[in-house]
Write a protein that binds this DNA or RNA. Structure first.
Lengths: 351, 351
DNA sequence: CTGAAAGCGCTTACAG
DNA sequence: CTGAAAGCGCTTACAG
């Protein structure tokens, strides 16, 4: 609302910072009034508010965050918690970080990165207790780790990205998976695929179960018997996708629905190494829509997660919670099926 | 030094936080003494220091950061500045974030993520001015952007990761590139390669120039005339690596030295698409050693950046600077040549 | 070595 | 609507 235009008298780097006191003095009001005016609290006449704001702007006033924190108990910084190596291993993690960072900036909140190691990270809990941040957005990738449960129990305002049905008491923003995967199976069926396989994720994760259930449900709906040898377990990594596919190919699938993009990329590598063609011998689909898929050949059919929407929802929810507002505990967002070469057969009908 | 063991009376989540006042009272000393004892300043008897620390530990005392900041002017939080989409596009960015986060944690510093958009980001400068952080580590990837220059001029304690010869006044930790690429060329020559090509990065970047110069120098050293049509420009992205290679192959290179891994991956895709084999028709090498290369086939010969060492150096330097110590302006770290299948010819001699 | 006191820059009841 | 005052939890000269 009251953005400081860039050309305002930008104080030279080392001049002592302008304080609220100065703004108040120049405006001819008390410090209290200036504070109220600047923070949009009522209890100030409109003309006074305007005057104060102008003065603040022309002086290049920027409130000292530490002082603000100390006095108000709020920091305007939120934390993003995820497992340390998620960032390096899967572009999904990087997409999340970027989208959360952007959302935080939109809400004028700082973003503190809390990369938790495998150990039940005291660092995370401590950072929160130290009053460095007001709340956290936690990537559900971390779920299962003991320290996440500790965190959830710690009464820290939290929004999970990803579902955690075991904790209906914590706010979560999840991406719809069940019906989306059904949609994928129907699409593959429309392309003439008859032996559709699925490499699911670790079943202790809710998203993995959802996707597997959706896969099964689609077969029911299609009136097909599902050959159980076509359902195998992966772990969301490229390498495992590759290994599992090598064996899976013995079952002669003509399509493989991977639980995520990384797995799908591994699948594609294994299929090609086996001398089979994509999509005509084996169609392949993924889930996520990270940047990684942009550079794959053939282009990968995948369910695109709306990262920006998810993270915006997570951050705005957290901000709402911190403001004391009621926020629905469960919010669901829908991915978009992006059909590409990896599943578009020459004989197939369009979806 | 004085780590709080996890089993200390961890106060239940909502109990009012333990303050320095309480620690002092229980210890039977003044607040000032307690502060000194806990912060390792002198002016306290050893037995007093010990007593205070024990009390603090058993009470589960954690200093309030905001108060500490306000009183001391230091925040114990550093910022990591990089272009917003670097994270999504190149695993290099993700590796950096992870390594810096780990280093910061080791130094007991919080890490604030400052993803700068393309626009000359006020947000970054403001965050710093607001006293949220003490200094920044800036990825040189960002170099060239106007706002980086603004930042460097802003007198903010800064350590650059990557070289910026135009700014010898700012601290920088760089990875040696010139000799490393020479090493690569010699390795390729030992494998029997005779027409070695190079796809360099954008030449406004120092790392790109260094690598190109090293490439040239190696030819000189080998007494070979360099065919200039074998030197082409890329932009560090996979897509461009692919496109450029398609044309480059007309020059019949038998090896391609890519300026980074992403480019190398694009090169490999293009080479294979052209029906040529790696490494026997065309050997390929990269630079970075990000996680991306672990899953490529054939495995990529590359110069592994010591990410942990680089980031540790950057963070510890920044911490030193903040403490008022002298730190060398330029620190150089060496990558390791990891020879893999993409450049190991059957007829070649070992390096 | 030790403590009383001032102060960091804000916010927030509390009286007017 | 407005201001004087207390207080957030620490650190840091400054006297002892």
């Amino acid at each position: 609302m009251d953005l400081v235009s860039g050309d305002a008298a930008t104080s030279s780097a080392n001049s002592p910072a302008v304080t609220l006191d100065e703004v108040a003095r120049v405006s001819g009001v008390s410090r209290a009034a200036a504070s109220r005016a600047l923070n949009g609290r009522d209890g100030v006449r409109d003309d006074v508010r305007l005057r104060v704001r102008h003065v603040a702007e022309s002086l290049g006033y920027r409130p000292n965050r530490a002082a603000k924190n100390l006095a108000s108990g709020r920091t305007s910084v939120i934390g993003l918690v995820m497992p340390s190596d998620e960032l390096r291993v899967d572009p999904y993690g990087a997409s999340l970080v970027q989208a959360v960072a952007n959302a935080a900036e939109r809400h004028d909140e700082g973003l503190m990165l809390l990369l938790a190691q495998n150990e039940p990270s005291r660092a995370v809990a401590d950072t929160i207790r130290d009053g460095l941040i007001d709340g956290v957005v936690v990537s559900a990738i971390a779920i299962g780790a003991r320290w996440v449960e500790e965190l959830l129990d710690a009464q820290v305002p939290t929004v999970l990205i990803g579902a955690h049905p075991g904790r209906p008491d914590v706010h979560q923003v999840e991406v719809e998976s069940h019906d989306s995967i059904m949609h994928v199976v129907h699409h593959l069926a429309s392309q003439g695929c008859e032996r559709i396989a699925h490499i699911h994720g670790p079943l202790h994760r809710d998203d993995a179960r959802q996707r597997l259930d959706g896969f099964r449900a689609a077969h029911l709906q299609l009136g097909r018997d599902l050959d159980e040898s076509l359902v195998v377990e992966g772990d969301y990594t490229r390498r495992t996708g590759q290994q599992v596919t090598a064996r899976l190919l013995e079952q002669r699938p003509d399509a493989i629905v991977a639980a995520n993009d990384e797995t799908a990329i591994g699948v594609m590598q294994a299929v090609e190494r086996a001398g089979l063609s994509i999509p005509d011998d084996v169609a392949v689909t993924g889930f996520d829509g990270t940047a990684a898929v942009e550079v794959i050949e053939p282009t990968l059919t995948t369910l695109m997660q709306p990262f920006d929407e998810i993270c915006e929802l997570a951050v705005s929810s957290l901000v709402s919670i911190l403001a004391g507002n009621a926020v629905p505990l469960r919010q669901v967002v829908h991915p978009t099926l992006a059909i590409a070469a990896s599943s578009s057969r020459t004989g197939g009908t369009s979806p």
